[in-house]
Amino acid sequence: MHIPDGFVDAPTSAAFGAVAVAGVGYAVKRAGDEASDQVVPLAGLCAAFVFAAQMLNFPVAMGTSGHLLGGVLAAVLVGPWLGAIAIAVVLGVQSLFADGGLTALGLNITNMALVGALGGYALFALVLRLLPARAPSVAAASAVAALITVPLAAGAFVIEFALGGTVDLPLGGVVGAMLGVHVLIGIGEAVITAATVSLVMSTRPDLVYGARDLLDARRLEIRPPAAAVPTGHGGGTGAAAGGLEPTATSVTGRRAASGSEA
């Protein structure tokens, strides 16, 4: 999904560079408005994790691979603004590894950070609203959003290519091929996103930005009865052991018990 230099001409790349600067700039502003110092390491972690996950290409179809884009994942975990920043950071750092063209950085940030994280979060929020207000819905909604975001980002590339592609091609073929492959990659994106979100939901649900409203409504949770089940005595393990003993040595047991009470 990383566009190299040369696919899209300079004016179009520059225009999307401006889009990327404006979008990420706005995300920085909004993130600063709502974020606190506590999220700083979480945002860094998010970028680090997405960088790592993007190295893990998985096979999709004949001789083709795909990897996580991570926009929805980042946005659900740390919020759309920080999420978009994290993805933009990942794309910037990847330049050091000669991945994704330098002149295409604006295109790639537009597709993966703006469409991927901001657009992806909008999708997530929409789907979450349609699902029952329960914790598993967070992972489910992020899966659906992730699945849709990948072909959406592929569609964004097609638009960019239509505007400034360096080759004149019948667009229909490019659209079909791009969407076809990226729907498959989207399935992988959905699986990885949902698995990671589920993992964080099961360990630190309070850190999942996308679960905030849900958790606020769920403050009063019914906890399963833990200690009361094994014995009829409601007094913990010491009392349970003491309660069993009198059946074996009832006389001494009683005596000891009454002696201690008296």
Partner: peptide
């Protein structure tokens, strides 16, 4: 690098 750059950028923003 991603961790440090991401953290620093957000730290600056905050």
């Amino acid at each position: 690098i991603a961790f440090v750059v991401g953290g620093l950028l957000v730290f600056g923003a905050v």
